[in-house]
Amino acid sequence: MKISPIKLIDENGRRIDGRLPHEIRKVKIESGVLKNADGSAYIELGNNKIIVAVYGPREVYPKHQALADRALLRCRYSMAPFSVEERKTPSPTRREIELSKVIREALEPAIFLEEYPRTAIDVFIEVLEADGGTRTASITAASVALADAGIPMRDLVTAIAIGKVEGLLVVDLNGLEDQYGEGDMPIAMMPQLGYVTLFQADGRFTAEELKEAFKLANDAIKKIYEEQKQALKRKYLKVAEIGEI
């Protein structure tokens, strides 16, 4: 059993950053933050800072990767060397390769890829600062960037991590809770359609806790979903204002 050297939940039931078990960190999402990209988004979730660019639908290079019946969705999740305590090498680690795959599979169900055969849609995720829950925040921001690129989607994808800290299920693990806690269960959903598109876990959970985790995730996802929609609307409010001048 991993024993945490620090107390993660205090006697008042507050977490190490002062939150209650079901509270998410402060979230800020902006869309259309990059000029070159067809779509982009920036998210801050607590101390996490992540920027996402979407290019496409565009021509596929190398050409043999093109798919005859749908667009090729490619996804690169990358952490900047300075985003973590100890410098991370810039070359992709095994963790980043796996995360790129699961993030792609989390976004894919939401996109009408069949509308754009023989093209590529590229999602580039750069984690500028990491503090637990980067994969889920990346998915949340990436789906905003995809929508910002004008790519037709069935729904946004919204994600949050449920964790187990000192035997208690908590929402939106931070870095310390992730490191010293007993489990981590990232969940991504298409909130409107009710489909789970990313689901992973490590640590030990009972079947009951699985049910509980879905309930907790649902509430957090609803809140973040609103933020995503607001981020997309805000960009067009700005456009409208400029239009009046």
Partner: peptide, 10 residues
């Protein structure tokens, strides 16, 4: 449950 991994395009 000591781990979960979802995969696939839907």
């Amino acid at each position: 449950i000591c781990g979960i991994q979802k995969g696939g395009k839907k």
